[in-house]
């Protein structure tokens, strides 16, 4: 990690001083312990601000749509897949970006850290390769990083960026696992149980739309929930309206969502609907053999069709 951070800064400095890019989007230290935040760097000597660690949680591809000029961007495995999607959907031009790929061993879920702290104040956090040391008034404890990983990261099989112009450090091995075992387990529950789960989760939703606003795939100038002619769905926190918002968002991101987990991380109410996104991801993979964001050639699955697509569900 430390090594990669050093390489990252060097690479960024070189890119800026060679005038290969106008700006670099990366991460810098946040104001709270164990937090990072996005940073936009334009001067070579500012590159020492850049950090790379297990708390670089934002999906930076989000900023590509508004960035001007030639943009260098730090991209983890999932970010790179989002970038591939954005290029395919013609939201960014390949030649306008320079991807600084970083193999990613997984991001720590700060909500899991909060759980570990049980209300105690975190004053300092130090990260090593496998552990995090949490310090505060009257306590200092160690936690294994493995146990703190975000749920999207525990089932991620694309840790290495699929597309990059330069790679920081070495590729890391991709884990072999059934990435959809949680979806299958959930599917095996009864209708009622699943319905109750989604109702419980969305009952906390305050319709702040942070999940939509932070998602790199949700870039519509006018979202369906904001439309007023016609007003499709109510903007009330009524359970039906809220459920529908989340359901339709899942449909809109089907075949485009890379399971980066940003939407669940930004939620102020801890609404956890990642399973819904994963279900859509699994469906497009099984039905249409499409793996989101893994190549630049294939058309997005919902923008195309084949004459022999499965249709068992049609009478």
């Amino acid at each position: 990690m430390q090594e990669n951070q050093k390489h990252l800064r060097e690479a960024a400095e070189k890119l800026l001083s060679d005038k290969k890019v106008d700006v670099i989007i990366g991460y810098e230290r946040g104001t709270l312990p164990l937090r990072t935040r996005p940073v936009f760097i334009r001067e070579p000597d500012e590159t020492k601000k850049l950090v790379w660690n297990s708390r670089c949680e934002n999906n930076l591809s989000f900023y590509l749509k508004t960035a001007k000029g030639k943009v260098g961007i730090v991209a983890k495995g999932c970010d790179a897949r989002s970038i591939v999607g954005l290029i395919k959907e013609r939201q960014v031009k390949r030649e306008d970006i320079f991807i600084i790929g970083v193999p990613c061993p997984g991001i720590i879920d700060r909500k899991k850290i909060e759980d570990t702290l049980e209300g105690r104040d975190l004053q300092e956090g130090v990260e090593s390769d496998s552990q995090v040391i949490l310090k505060g008034e009257g306590f200092e404890e160690k936690a294994d990083k493995d146990k703190l990983l975000h749920s999207s990261c525990t089932t991620c099989t694309h840790r290495n960026p699929v597309l990059y112009d330069t790679l920081i450090g070495k590729e890391i091995p991709e884990p072999k696992m059934d990435e959809y075992s949680d979806v299958e387990e959930f599917s095996s529950k009864k209708d009622n149980e699943r319905w109750t789960y989604f109702n419980d989760e969305t009952s906390r939703c305050i319709r702040c739309y942070a999940c939509r606003n932070a998602c790199p795939s949700c870039y519509c100038p006018q979202c369906f929930v904001d439309q007023s002619l016609p007003t499709w769905f109510g903007r009330t926190p009524h359970p039906s309206d809220t459920l529908i918002f989340h359901m339709i968002r899942t449909l809109h991101t089907a075949g485009r969502c890379v399971d980066c987990g940003t939407c669940s991380r930004v939620c102020p109410m801890n609404v956890e609907l990642q399973i819904l996104n994963k279900k859509a991801e699994k469906d497009v993979k099984e039905l249409y053999g499409y793996e989101v964001g893994t190549n630049l050639e294939e058309l997005p699955p919902m923008a195309t069709f084949k004459i022999d697509d499965p249709q068992e569900f049609i009478k």
Partner: peptide
């Protein structure tokens, strides 16, 4: 109808996954 078929396949799957009979 072929574009619709893909759309409905995912829609139906998500609907039932959420617990609609």
């Amino acid at each position: 109808n072929l574009v619709a078929r893909r759309r409905f396949a995912i829609f139906k799957s998500i609907l039932e996954f959420m617990g609609v009979e």
